[in-house]
Design a protein around this nucleic acid. Structure first.
Lengths: 391, 391
DNA sequence: ATTCCTATTGACAACGTTGTCAGTAGAAAA
DNA sequence: TTTTCTACTGACAACGTTGTCAATAGGAAT
């Protein structure tokens, strides 16, 4: 039945196993193993082919070698200006679009960075940071792969691997509130992939970072509350494993100590994740037998909850209770009374981190740099007992 | 001075031009052209090398061929289960991470999609859409490249080219308010790259899309205002070249006509970009000699501006003026009075669009599908004249 | 006319995979 | 023992670039 694809004989053929699902044959005469060729010839030339023009297509069109085309396209001075012009014209005429994938493979640089952030809808914070990042990226002709960890440690690990597999040149990362072990991030170091922490940095791993001065934030908030005459000052603190929470708390405590005021542990409560136990935190403070008259809240969102709950209970703000939040959420300036807040430069933060990262990528600089950005107190009605003090 | 790298002679050498900046020589005796080898030998083996383990490293460690390793890693049943196990173990031991770049080059699919959106900080809309997109992407093991067009037509073109050059498998795009010509998007079609419009779709190009039912939004808003007893109903409309603006306007007009109410052109104003001339729009309506008693605003942001301006002028809301916005911005439920709004499912929109796109990618389906998502009216104080009507 | 040399072009090996097919040892069948 | 035949493994050509180096035509110098 089957005849040899070389000599055409039929009698000399015997079966010779399978490759995948395809029967193989052996011709005794030619000592040749073979499989029957597929019937559908050249399916590629019909539809699939010529989706993209390559350097070789240009070379063929111009009857020159493809390496000359490559050089012309790269502006290499060894090529004759005339041929360069011809190549450039033909490239435009044929709508040539360079394959960055192939380029990455040979150059070992992708001009792509990875971005890992825990969330994009919890507040306007990360969108603003992203805005800053993208501004610099498009200026420097970089591309970005965006990953959301959704505050999950497992996702964060998966994201890191995904970025490594996609051979990014560098990574901007804001760790989850659950990240303790950092070996997945350490991988970047092993592979010489620079990374910069944004906003949230782990305490257990050395690395470049761009964060706001959270210690100063705690100080400024408490200083302001003391100025307004508060004497029992409380703090709703953030997740304890995040450095920024600790720093704000440290600023909070140090400032109280500086003013020789007692630190009452019952006035410090911890919110474990953005809104998980926030209601309990707020209720705890308001229901104390000896409640606070001033609160520094680590996030505007919970500050707003506090204001709403206090209004509900008939507690007058700011006369009975002053509130200072952090983050300058758009809502804060719209709520009644408007919420005082500590704010850092968010868009700027994205920009600075990206510039830092790209510099590390391009200079192969090994040294870490840690940038601390200044914070600002925006005084609004929620903490202003003397209206005339508004500047 | 220079001796032939082959025969070692000195007298037979003559110069032979340059290649780049490097001097070349010619040996008459051997008829050989050559350049002097670089002094620094194997700089790669020191630092640069072995950043990443490859399939060949595993093959060498196991003393088998790299194609067998590849097959083992891919789970190809032709490899012996024993060798597969050996390979898998060694891959883990050596911390092998597959190079997706190389894979993309040979497979012509990157498992990456491009996302082009006009903005990420103008409202919570796009972050929410992104959230939905990312949820599906991580579920389906896809990666995304994020591009912001910043409402600029030129940027949008650049973004499209960037995505093509990065060989994405598909694109999600929300066009800018300025996009008229769509040839840059048509490119995707030419290259067989599926794309899905999110929220904003051009009128001049056929394509899959996922949008909210903007016509219905206009209808619902006006129906509600009429129910509340409004008789002079105004509309602040969005950019005129965006289909969604036109649809909302069409719903607005049709509903007025349906109720046999006149359409007063002085009550329809156009906002050309998010906040560009919004103040003028608001002022125009409030300063009319015969002002409206109900307004449907195409965006919550401008609805809020309207409320603030009306309060400033002492116009009572909702008794003298009812306002309905669109977008359900978080601020809308916090402002006083709370703003009624029309809202569509934003996160859902991102999910549906992404599922649609991935389906088009994986089935190579050529047919376009246009999904219209239902909108919902959230009634709040800004448009509720009879308090008891709250359900 | 002969030699030298320069400007330009071409050939080819990477890069790290996948997939096709050829080759082989040795078990099963004769 | 000889002849099938099967289960594996290996070689190698893609994929679209970049970069290194060899080759060549023909002008300048002798």
């Amino acid at each position: 039945m089957v005849e040899c694809i070389k000599c055409g004989e039929v009698g000399t053929i015997s079966k010779a196993g399978k490759v995948g699902k395809k029967q193989r044959y052996f011709c005794k005469h030619c000592k040749l193993h073979f499989t029957l060729p597929n019937k559908n010839i050249a399916p590629r030339s019909e539809l699939e082919k010529k989706q993209n023009v390559t350097i070789k297509d240009i070379a063929e069109a111009l009857q020159i070698s493809f390496s000359t085309v490559s050089k012309a396209l790269l502006g290499n001075p060894v090529v004759n200006p005339e041929t360069r012009k011809k190549v450039l014209d033909m490239a435009i005429k044929m709508n040539y679009q360079p394959n960055l994938i192939a380029k990455t493979l040979v150059k070992h640089t992708s001009n792509t960075i990875g971005i890992i952030i825990p969330s994009i809808i919890s507040s306007s914070f990360y969108p603003e940071v992203l805005q800053g990042i993208q501004e610099i990226l498009s200026e420097k002709k970089y591309t970005s792969i965006l990953c959301l960890s959704h505050e999950s440690y497992e996702n964060e690990i998966a994201n890191c691997n995904q970025l490594i597999n996609n051979r990014v040149d560098g990574v901007l990362i804001s760790i989850t509130s659950k990240t303790q072990d950092t070996s997945h991030i350490k991988q970047f170091e092993d592979k010489n992939i620079p990374f910069v922490f944004i906003n949230r940095a782990p305490e257990t791993l050395q690395g470049s970072s761009v964060t706001v001065d959270n210690y100063l934030a705690g100080c400024k908030a408490v200083e302001h509350l003391i100025e307004q005459g508060c004497t029992r000052i409380a703090h709703i603190a953030g997740p304890t494993n995040l450095a920024f929470s600790k720093e704000r708390l440290r600023g909070f405590c140090d400032t109280l100590i500086k003013h020789r005021m007692p630190i009452d542990m019952s006035l410090i409560v911890y919110n474990d994740l953005y809104t998980a136990n926030s209601k309990e935190c707020v209720a705890h403070l308001l229901n104390l037998s000896h409640p606070p008259d001033g609160v520094f809240v680590y996030s505007d969102f919970i500050g707003i909850e506090l204001i709403l709950a206090a209004k509900e209970k008939g507690i007058a703000i700011p006369t009975e209770l002053c509130v200072v939040g952090m983050g300058n959420n758009p809502v804060s300036s719209i709520i009644d009374p408007q919420l005082s807040t500590i704010t850092g430069p968010t868009v700027e933060m994205g920009k600075i981190a990206t510039e830092l990262l790209i510099e590390e990528i391009e200079t192969k600089n090994q040294k870490f740099s840690n940038r601390l950005l200044d914070v600002e107190l925006i005084v609004r009605k929620s903490s202003l007992r003397n209206e005339s003090e508004i500047k």
